[in-house]
Nucleic acid binder design. Structure first.
Lengths: 350, 350
DNA sequence: TTGTAAGCGTTATCAC
DNA sequence: GTGATAACGCTTACAA
């Protein structure tokens, strides 16, 4: 039945032989010292027997709060955001809050921010532009993995992730880097790009080229092909490079010969794998490839993907804690969550 | 701000110089013939200017319905369910309903059904056992991809999917089939298993072995290894079979030599790929592998996966339509959605 | 055509 | 200790 099934606290009161307000007190758990243990027990029992559930709408109306938070994500089809939701829901449940999720129609959907459900106390916006969020005028907001700004942020340390990746590759002898970057213009990807550029610049003799792509396997495949084989016509059989460029000469003298391909995302890395195969490049023999996020895909690919693990669940959980603090009138500090380098099999000596 | 920002219809009424009920009528869109166009316009304008949003809690309380549906899924980390949610949310929005999603803690979590949010009008339960759902006593329910039972169901035609797959493989000459089955005991997987068994039985001279596995890449990898190389010690180097069994002899005389591995799920198929590599079996040269669902993974794998595309978004959308019909007092018929065979590169001649 | 008023089910403030 | 009672903001007869 909708709401509470037409069974109200008044019914419970009648059945238990007490007043309605007593039922409310008992159900609310604030009866100690106001209601006798005996009556409290009776009330609890009859409520249970009748299957009574307090009506949330009435409670929300009275309390002025819905105990519901809204999580806005670009898409749930990327499991990263599914994990953010799981973490947020778990943390919220601990405070008797619920989390509803709104998936926008894509990474750069600048329209569908229209909040679908106004019965919320606050919003958690993931990977989103600050200006987009202006529409939520007045609603308490915490931004996840986004540009620091007026709203409190909870971020993952993507810069550190890029530094870790670069260090790992540099130690392996790589000097010619390429960045297969997300073309989505959001803070997290700008930060990744800048951090990578900075980290590569700190490596003696290292070079970096960059190419944007949409976040999809096929788009990334095409972009990676263009990046790796600029001179070849699109459909040309690969393999020539492999033989042309002497591998493991490390000194990076061969112009344009990229040996390390850093991808903004695991999905993009999956596309890069395909491009490498198209061109006859062995991974990691001819080309090391790295991802970012560490979603399901990373382990499913062959060879398994070296990537950066982002603490998705914790991002969601800390986001909720921060939002709750904001709702309580506090001024939560910006949070930055550490990341881990996960070395698997897609990176090797240059 | 929580709720509606402390700005009520009364405030709008005062600002517009009309009564509160007039505001309500106008905002509710049922003013034609009851309020003059001029007043209606004034009201709309001031509401807009003030940024007024009706309080959902109050509306829900008064109306006895929350215009909110709950979608319960095993996990959102599998993009299949993310798409179900997207379809459900889209369809619901068209009826001014919202959809909140509850992810259980896994495929066979038999505990966490406790609905996290009672303010709902109905429930959409995905891939779930009928008996589990008994706890939702009285709440209107539609089951998705689940056992037909007392509640209306919206299913995808998984049986047809298995028949399509079997036919495709049989035409390629396969006779020795193996089923890497989900160990989750839910209707959808039982149906897949039975349909596959039936379809294989209809192929002259065909045999089928079955092995259950958890739905994860590593679990499936281990299960597939055990299935494909029962005689080998776990760590034994593969490749022997490849040379032992004459490939493409098709006649299926070599005992135990499986040539087609049908997986209950794309994630399981990803594990099967790894097992094949472990054992030195080429896909599809030595072994054809098929998946089920057609999620992101299918295209990311190499070779790309032959699988069955399930209409996830439509499943969600039709689920909502069915639930809405149920809420309206109707008796919605059971729905069965067609599926498509997607032939890619993981299947080839036996 | 517009305004008045009675609830919806809850919580919380008071008298008792 | 317990029970009336007044909101919370909205929808909708019904009165003016």
């Amino acid at each position: 039945m909708a709401m509470t099934g037409r069974l109200t606290s008044k019914d419970v009161a009648a059945a238990a032989g007490v007043s309605q307000s007593t039922v409310s007190l008992v159900m609310g758990g604030k009866w100690t010292g106001r209601v006798s243990p005996a009556t409290a027990h009776t009330v609890l029992e009859t409520a249970e027997r009748l299957g009574y559930r307090p009506n949330r709408a009435a409670r929300s109306l009275r309390m002025g709060s819905t105990r519901t938070l809204l999580l806005v994500v670009p898409t749930l089809a990327n499991p990263f955001f599914a994990h953010v939701h799981a973490g947020a829901a778990r943390a919220a449940a601990g405070h008797e809050f619920g989390v509803i999720v709104h998936q926008r129609t894509g990474y750069d959907d600048r329209e569908s921010l229209t909040v679908p459900h106004e019965a919320i106390d606050g919003v958690l916006a993931t990977s989103m532009e600050a200006d987009l969020v202006a529409e939520l005028r007045g609603i308490p907001l915490v931004m996840l993995d986004s540009e620091p700004g007026p709203a409190p942020t909870v971020n993952v340390d993507v810069e550190e992730g890029m530094r870790l990746l670069t260090g790992h590759l540099a130690v392996l002898g790589h000097r010619r880097f390429a960045h297969l970057a997300s073309e989505v213009d959001s803070w997290t990807f700008r930060a990744r790009g800048e951090a990578l550029a900075g980290a590569v610049a700190a490596v003696r003799g290292a070079t970096l080229v960059r190419r944007p792509t949409a976040i999809s396997v096929q788009a990334a495949r095409a972009a990676a092909r263009a990046l790796l084989a600029p001179a070849h016509p699109p459909g040309a059989p690969g393999g020539s490079w492999k033989r042309l460029a002497g591998r493991r000469t490390a000194s990076a003298d061969a112009p344009g010969r990229v040996t390390a391909l850093v991808c903004d995302d695991d999905v993009i890395a999956a596309g890069a794998y395909k491009a490498a195969r198209d061109l006859g490049l062995a991974v990691p023999g001819d080309l090391s490839i790295t991802g970012f996020d560490d979603v399901l895909l990373a382990e499913a690919l062959e060879p398994e993907l070296t990537t950066v693990r982002l603490p998705a669940e914790e991002l969601g959980a800390r986001g909720v804690e921060t939002l709750l603090e904001l709702l309580a009138g506090g001024e939560p500090p910006a949070v930055r969550l550490p990341v881990d380098l996960v070395v698997r099999a897609s990176t090797g000596p240059a």
